[in-house]
Amino acid sequence: MDGICLELTGQLGTSQPGEAEVERSLIRRAQRGDRAAFDALVRRYDQEVLRMALKIVRSSDEAQDLYQEVFLKVYRSIGQFRLESRFSTWLYRVVMNVCYDHLRRQRTRGEVQATENEDGQPDFAQTLTEDRPISNPDRALTAKEISGRLQAALTRLTPRERMVFELKHCQGLKLRAIGEMCGTSEEAAKNSLFRALQKLRVDLRDLA
């Protein structure tokens, strides 16, 4: 895994050399049990982790559970992290493993994902920001419908296809990196992406 170079997008703040050193210092302190340092690390990445969790589950309660599971895992195993690797890469892998396990459990239980609105009703467009099409009432209906259709289509993907699609389409990672993160080959990741896109094409043909 040393060869891959992934980084969570969003509020990373580790691109500058000084920032990277600050982060290494925080990691070292967290490894010695310094809670404040661990909290500071969490604050660097937690918005992006939550954003990714929301993409996978679309329910704020479930996303909250995934968020907690990710950072508890990181807390318990940060002592094993080696500083020569990128922390963001390591964290990203934890996020992926947690999400993947969640999807597999969900699939085993036969659950269907849906975002809930304030009334507890499914609402796939509840967390949109104001610059999204939903701020225009005419477009809001379309956006809501599309979002609902997309979400339904995504739930029909296998956990592997779903993860590969999210990593490729939403995170923009290279297939080689996705393969390594998922513990498989680039070719297998490519095939998962093809199958995911094929299923989405069939499900969303009338919208595209």
């Binding site: 939550l50 929301l54 996303a63 467009a125 599309i146 939403c170 595209a208």
Partner: peptide
């Protein structure tokens, strides 16, 4: 484009 333009959930400050 449909997949790209489709609204994606953003964490609200309250949820965070």
């Amino acid at each position: 484009r449909l997949l790209t333009d489709c609204p994606r959930p953003e964490p609200t400050p309250d949820l965070l």
